[in-house]
Computed example of a mutant assay.
Amino acid sequence: MFVPRPETELLAGWGISVIRPGAVVVDLCSGSGAIALAVANEAPGARVYAVERSPSALAWLRRNAGARAAAADPPIEVVEGDATDPAVLAELDGTVDLVLCNPPYVPAGVAVPVDVADHDPAEAVFAGPDGLSVIRPVLARAAALLRPGGFFGVEHDDTHGVAVPDLLRADGRFIDIDDHRDLAGRPRYATASRMADCTA
């Protein structure tokens, strides 16, 4: 099972800082639900949707979301599906305040630390030759889900500090594009806002 790492706390913290009480939040590629749980715990009244397709990850996501369900208001809604599929949560298109995503992003063939290689499933780590095969369609899905002025944040490989912001610019539906460094000073996640004067 993929183990969330401290770098992901920075992405979740950024997301929590930009939303208001009662926000609608979607966590794509939710895995075990670390981001969804952080937002639900720290953002009062947020409606959080956690999207995951892996059966093994879903088992942990449901378990973790269920563990706080009694105290949750509202509870996290677990959604089984591909985060890049336009049909998943299509009913929310154009209404979401915040989309966060920690997708697979390591380029295929790149050596990873032993703790990752020994314990994390490859599908949760690697994403094609350049590491962007999941991020590309996730950007498009985020643009469709977000309301005008909504926020998007995505974690990426430390070699993607230019590539991911460039993809956001090329999409044409995002503004206020920025890249952020992790605790070790490496490029780690990109953020943007949904442009207000265009349609999906």
Rank of each mutant, 00 (worst) to 15 (best):
M1G: 13
F2P: 15
P4F: 03
P4S: 11
E7S: 10
T8N: 02
L10A: 14
A12V: 11
G13T: 13
V18F: 01
I19E: 05
I19D: 04
P21R: 00
V25S: 09
V25D: 08
S32V: 04
I35E: 08
V39Y: 13
N41D: 14
A43I: 04
A46C: 10
R47F: 10
V48T: 07
Y49S: 04
Y49F: 15
R53S: 06
S54K: 00
P55L: 02
A59C: 07
R62H: 07
R62M: 07
A67Y: 00
A69T: 04
A69L: 03
A72K: 09
P75D: 11
P75H: 08
V78Q: 08
G81C: 09
A83K: 03
T84K: 04
A87T: 14
L89F: 05
L92V: 12
L92C: 11
V96I: 06
V99P: 00
L100A: 07
N102A: 15
P104Q: 03
P104A: 14
Y105G: 02
P107G: 02
V110W: 13
V110G: 01
V114T: 14
D115N: 07
P121N: 02
G128C: 10
D130H: 06
L132G: 03
S133W: 10
I135Q: 10
P137C: 07
P137N: 09
V138N: 06
R141C: 04
A142R: 07
L146N: 03
R147F: 11
F151C: 13
F152K: 07
V154K: 01
E155W: 10
D158N: 12
T159N: 03
H160Y: 12
G161W: 03
A163E: 15
R169F: 08
D171P: 01
F174A: 07
F174R: 11
H180E: 10
R181W: 06
L183R: 12
L183C: 04
R186F: 12
P187V: 02
R188S: 13
R188G: 03
A190I: 08
T191M: 12
M195P: 00
